[in-house]
């Protein structure tokens, strides 16, 4: 039995505590914005916020999450997130879209810690997010755009 908060809502999961958070979110909560790409912390498609920090949900067993606060793309809010989402839409970053929730989570986390990231900061913060469609040029641009709107 695991009790935690998902997108501000209290949930109780009576399932195998070794179940990765990814599958609990998708199979049990039907929160399908969080994606499966590799299952081994290599692609970032499954990135969620765990107690406010980005986390690969595919390698996070729910047994470790008693009392935790999890936020998925569906439950994200706040200035950084909105700036990122708007910037993403402004230049049509997504192609197939499968990696994009994860990209947006990582980008939001970056801006929360660093309001004016350089290209190098972006490369470091986004290194774990693979995009097979190679939308990277626009990911980088959109993060700069979002940072600019945050500045005011």
């Amino acid at each position: 039995m695991t009790n935690l908060t998902v997108n501000g809502k209290e949930v109780t999961w009576d399932i195998d505590p070794e179940t990765p958070l990814l599958w609990a979110l998708r199979d049990h909560e039907k929160l399908t914005g969080t994606k499966f790409g590799c299952g081994v912390a290599q692609c970032g498609a499954c990135t969620v916020m765990l107690n406010g920090m980005p986390r690969r949900s595919c390698v996070t067993p729910i047994g470790t999450l008693e009392g935790a606060e999890v936020t998925t793309i569906e439950g994200m809010e706040g200035a950084e997130f909105e700036a990122v989402q708007t910037a993403w839409q402004g230049i049509d970053v997504p192609q197939c879209g499968w990696c994009q929730s994860g990209q947006i989570m990582s980008a939001t986390a970056l801006l929360q810690m660093n309001g004016a990231p350089t290209d190098e900061d972006i490369d470091n913060a986004m290194a774990g997010n693979v995009c097979r469609c190679a939308t990277y040029v626009r990911v980088r641009q959109a993060i700069h755009d979002a940072a600019k709107t945050m500045e005011g």
Binding site: T32, G33, F36, W88, Q89, D92, P94, Q100
Partner: peptide, 21 residues
């Protein structure tokens, strides 16, 4: 023209094959 599916692909609501239950 802006792409028709960008919005859904930036808020987690786009439904792909694997997202069906």
């Amino acid at each position: 023209l802006p792409k028709l599916d960008t919005q859904k692909k930036t808020n987690g609501s786009a439904i792909f094959g694997m997202d069906q239950y």
